[in-house]
Design a protein around this nucleic acid. Structure first.
Length: 565
RNA sequence: UGGGCGGUCGACUAAUGGUAGGUCAAGUGCCUUUGGAGCACUUUGUCUAGGUUCGAAUCCUAGCCGCCCAGCCA
C-alpha cells in the first residue's frame, strides 16, 4: 500500500507534536445513536482511527447521547457492529456523553457561580426573536442579570423536575451582539422530561451538544477532535467552554463531509426512506449505510482503500460513485472465487453431444490467485447461456454466438450455432449447436481461434436461484436537487431493485453461506444474501464487471449514424 | 445582507516561493479461455484582474463564485 498523501490534518498534528502543544495523539469517533452509520461516517472513522494509529495514539468510541428523544439502543448496537466491521478497535474505551452528565451539571453550576451562565424564562419563540438575525445583533434577555443565587436555585429546581418542558433554559452569558450566532448566549441545558436509554429517569434536564461535546473531549483527554465543516462556527464556543472551565483543551479540526453522486448522506432522509417503506430497511443493499453496503457485498478493505484514495480537505465536493465502485472491484478481483451463473437463461441444445452423458470440466477458481485452486463443473447436452450472449442478427462488433458462428464455452468446448427455435411471438427460445469434441477444455488442437468465450450452466445440474440486481437509488447525481415543491423522493429510481428468479447457477454454489462473495464470470460480483434458505439461495449483485461491449452498444445507440450493418 | 470556510484536469487530491504530479473517469493500442483483470500510451487543469519576485497554484490587493450559521438537533 502506498503511503497516503499528505493532508492538512496530518500537517496540523505534526506541527502540534513539534511545538509541544501535545505530546501524544488521541482522537475519538463521536456518533449520535439516532440512526445507522453510512459511508460518510466511514470516512470520519477512518480519519480518526487512522490518524491516531499513524502516530501511535488511541481512539475512543463515544456516543453523543445528549438528546434522549431521538436516540435508541438499536442504533448504539448497530454502530458498535459497524465500527468493528470496519476493522477498528477502541479496546476498553467505549464511552457515552451521558456518562458525564454529573460532571457536566457541576460545570454548569461552576459557570453560574462565575456569572457566566443564567437561567432564562424566555420561551423558545422569544429566544429566537431575541437572537436577532444574520445582519442584526440580538437583544439581551430580561433574565440575563439574574443574581447568581437565584440562578443556582432555579437551575437546581430545573433539575428537580419542578418545571415543564420548554419553560426555562440555562444559557451561557457571552455576547448577544456577536456576529457568530453561536456566541449569542447559547442554550446549554434544556428541560426534557424524557427517559434516556442509559440514564433512565435520572435526569429531566439535558445538556446541549455545545456544552457536552468539548467537555467530553476534555474529560477523555482527546488531543485532536476531528469533525465536519459545519461545526467550524462552533469552534469559538467549544474553546470558550474549556477555557472558562479551565480544563484540558483539545483541538477541534474540521474537514469536509463525504458527498457521493447518486447518494443521499443525511441520516434524517435515510430514516425517512426506512420509515416510509421506500427501502426494505436500514440494511437494504441500496442504502449507503454500512449495514446496507455490507449486505450488498462490499468489503471493509475496499471502503478503507476508497477513503484513503479520496483524501481529505475543506472543499465541498462530490465524489463520483465510480470511484467507490472501482475500489470494490479492485478488492474483489483479488479475492472473489469465480463461478458461472446465468441470469437470463437461454436454452442451448448441442445436437451432436450424446444424450444422457455428462462430464466434469476443470475450472479455475481465481486466475488472480493460484492458491484458490480449481473445481469441477458438470457439462451436458442441454445448457443455459445468457440471452445477451446470442443474437440472431449480430450487430457489428458483436462477437458472441449467432447463427453459423463458433464460440468457446468457458472451460467447455467450441460450439457452432446451427439453428434456432422460436415461439409464436417470434422470440428465440432455444438455440441449436454442434460441438467439436477435439476442443475439450477450450482449446482447438488445430490452433484455430474464436472471437469470444461465453459462460454457461448445465441445465440438468443447474441450481435455481434468486438474484437481486441493484441500480442507483436515485436517478440524479445530487438527489437533493429537486424541482420546486417536491422533495428528494421525487428523484428515487423506480428501477433501483430488479428481482430475478430462476437464475441458473453452477451446482458448486449449493452450499454458499450468507455473506460470501463470488464473481459470476463476465457479469459481476455477487454476495449471498441472508434471505437465502437451504436450496433457495438469494444473491445480491454487489457491482457489475466493467463492460466494454455495453459501452460500444450505448455509443452506437447514441450515434445512429450507422444503423446498417 | 453580518460572520465563518472554501475555489488546481470531467471527479477527487498533491505540489508548503523553484519541473503543475497521482487516483478515478474518458479515449487509443497491446494482451487475454472473463469484451473481466493486466500493461502501455493519450486528452483535459491552477476562478478573474492587478501587484510583489529572477521565479507565484503558493505571498499581497480587489473582485467573482460556492458552501455553512438565525434548533430548547447533533
Amino acid at each position: 500500500m502506498s503511503a497516503s498523501p499528505s493532508n492538512f490534518i496530518r500537517d496540523i498534528i505534526v506541527e502540534d507534536l513539534k511545538t509541544g502543544r501535545y505530546n501524544r495523539v488521541h482522537t475519538r469517533f463521536p456518533p449520535e445513536p439516532n440512526g445507522y452509520l453510512h459511508i460518510g461516517h466511514a470516512k470520519a472513522i477512518c480519519l480518526s482511527f487512522g490518524l491516531a494509529a499513524e502516530f501511535g495514539g488511541q481512539t475512543n468510541l463515544r456516543f453523543d447521547d445528549t438528546n434522549p428523544s431521538k436516540e435508541d439502543l438499536e442504533y448504539v448496537q448497530s454502530i458498535i457492529e459497524d465500527v468493528s466491521w470496519m476493522g477498528f478497535d477502541w479496546e476498553d474505551r467505549l464511552f457515552y456523553a451521558s456518562d458525564y452528565f454529573d460532571q457536566l451539571y457541576e460545570w454548569a453550576v461552576q459557570l453560574i457561580k462565575a456569572g457566566k451562565a443564567y437561567v432564562d424564562d424566555l420561551s423558545a419563540d422569544e429566544i429566537r426573536q431575541y437572537r436577532g438575525t444574520l445582519t442584526q445583533p440580538g437583544k439581551e434577555s430580561p433574565y440575563r442579570k439574574r443574581p447568581v443565587e437565584e440562578n443556582l436555585q432555579l437551575f437546581e429546581r430545573m433539575r428537580a423536575g419542578e418545571f415543564p418542558d420548554g419553560s426555562r433554559t440555562l444559557r451561557a452569558k457571552i455576547d448577544m451582539a456577536s456576529p457568530n450566532l453561536n456566541m449569542r448566549d447559547p442554550v446549554i441545558y434544556r428541560i426534557l422530561h424524557a427517559e434516556h436509554h442509559r440514564t433512565g429517569a435520572k435526569w429531566c434536564i439535558y445538556p446541549m451538544y455545545d456544552f457536552a461535546h468539548g467537555q467530553s473531549d476534555s474529560i477523555e483527554k482527546i488531543t485532536h477532535s476531528i469533525c465536519t465543516l459545519e461545526f467550524e462556527d462552533h469552534r469559538p464556543l467549544y474553546n470558550w467552554f474549556v477555557e472558562q472551565l479551565g480544563i484540558f483543551h483539545p483541538r477541534q479540526i474540521e474537514f469536509d463531509r463525504l458527498n457521493l453522486t447518486y447518494t443521499l448522506m443525511s441520516k434524517r432522509k435515510l430514516l425517512a426512506l426506512v420509515e416510509k417503506g421506500l427501502v426494505r430497511g436500514w440494511d437494504d443493499p441500496r442504502m449507503p449505510t454500512l449495514a446496507g453496503i455490507r449486505r450488498r457485498g462490499y468489503t471493509p478493505q475496499a471502503i478503507r482503500n476508497f477513503v484513503t484514495a479520496i483524501g481529505v480537505s475543506k472543499t465541498n465536493g462530490m465524489i463520483e460513485l465510480a470511484m467507490l465502485e472501482h475500489f470494490i472491484r479492485e478488492d474483489l478481483n483479488k479475492r472473489a472465487l469465480r463461478v458461472m451463473g446465468v441470469l437470463h437463461p437461454l436454452r442451448v441444445v448441442i445436437d451432436n453431444y450424446p444424450e444422457g452423458q455428462a462430464e466434469e470440466m476443470n475450472a479455475i477458481n481465481n486466475p488472480e490467485d493460484e492458491s484458490a485452486g480449481s473445481r469441477k463443473v458438470p457439462f451436458s447436452r442441454v445448457l443455459y447461456i445468457e440471452q445477451d450472449d446470442f443474437r440472431e442478427n449480430p450487430p457489428k462488433q458483436f462477437y458472441r454466438l449467432s447463427p453459423g458462428r463458433e464460440v468457446r464455452l468457458r472451460y467447455g468446448y467450441f460450439i457452432t450455432c446451427t439453428g434456432v427455435v422460436k415461439n409464436d411471438a417470434g422470440e428465440v427460445v432455444e438455440v441449436h449447436c454442434t460441438y467439436d469434441p477435439a476442443t475439450r477444455g477450450g482449446n482447438a488442437p488445430d490452433g484455430r481461434k474464436v472471437k469470444s468465450t461465453i459462460h454457461w450452466v448445465s441445465a440438468a445440474h443447474a441450481l435455481d436461484a434468486e438474484v437481486r440486481l441493484y441500480e442507483n437509488l436515485f436517478t440524479t447525481e445530487d438527489p437533493n436537487d429537486v424541482p420546486e415543491g417536491q422533495d428528494f423522493t421525487a428523484n428515487l429510481n423506480p428501477n433501483s431493485l430488479q428481482v430475478l428468479t430462476h437464475c441458473k447457477l453452477e451446482p458448486s454454489l449449493a452450499h454458499a453461506t450468507a455473506g460470501s462473495r463470488y464473481q459470476f464470470e463476465r457479469l459481476g460480483y455477487f454476495s449471498v444474501d441472508p434471505d437465502s434458505k437451504a436450496g433457495q439461495p438469494v444473491f445480491n449483485r454487489t457491482v457489475a464487471l466493467k463492460d466494454t461491449w455495453q459501452k460500444i452498444e450505448k455509443r452506437s445507440a447514441a450515434s445512429p449514424l450507422k444503423t446498417t450493418s
